[in-house]
Design a binder for these strands. Structure first.
Length: 188
DNA sequence: TATAAGATTTACT
DNA sequence: GTAAATCTTATAT
């Protein structure tokens, strides 16, 4: 996976099935990435960095690929993004869902839920389950609290759905673009 | 300073 | 199905 590539949609597709891990004070949680959305920076009305809008909040999006972008949504939920592309190319991929792998007991504690499916099937839930907050904003992947490595299974094209992104009606016609990738692995 | 809106989640009817 | 929760950020006075 080349995070400096400008082909953000290909990176988004290739993130599916990869294992994302956090470790805090020896407490480790991980999961396979199952849902992502691509935000294509300057040319994408749904992106915080549309028209290269540069603010304190969006600054990490302009950093090199491999940077972590975490922001607060609706005053309540943290959202985890992986920045990609070269410097000053503000594309990012929102991690919307994972399949829990390691530290599942800790995820239940953090989420205060009793069902596995309620742990991490949404972007705010992913951050809560993995203990991610804005204190990870601007860190680099694989050198800070968050790491991404190859997953255990190959993700077949027939197991992947592509469709419009969620919750971005404000983006006009760009809200219809097929930038959401969903992995539904087949049982074996 | 003030205001509106938001890449959502949850509980409730 | 609908609506409330909650607070930062961006934009406008």
């Amino acid at each position: 996976m080349n995070l400096l590539s400008t082909d953000t949609l290909s990176i988004a597709r290739s993130l599916l099935g990869m294992e994302i891990t956090t470790s805090f004070n020896g407490v480790c949680t991980s999961g396979y990435i199952s849902e992502v959305e691509a935000y294509l920076g300057a040319e994408d009305k749904a992106s915080h960095s549309y028209r290269n809008k540069r603010t304190d909040r969006t600054e990490p999006m302009f950093a090199e690929g491999g940077t972590i972008y975490v922001y607060l949504c609706y005053g309540i939920h943290e959202m985890l993004n992986l920045v990609c592309g070269p410097l000053d190319h503000p594309h990012a991929i929102l991690i919307r869902g994972i399949i829990p792998v390691e530290g599942i007991e800790e995820m239940y504690r953090r989420r205060n839920k009793s069902r596995l499916k309620d742990l991490s099937n949404g972007p705010g839930k992913v951050c809560q389950a993995m203990g991610i907050s804005r204190s990870q904003n601007g860190q680099r992947i694989n050198t800070g609290d968050i790491s991404i490595s190859n997953g255990a299974k190959e993700v077949l094209d027939r197991e992947v759905s592509v469709g419009p992104r969620i919750g971005i009606d404000y983006a006009g016609e760009d809200s219809l673009l097929p930038y959401r990738f969903l992995w539904h692995p087949q049982v074996d």
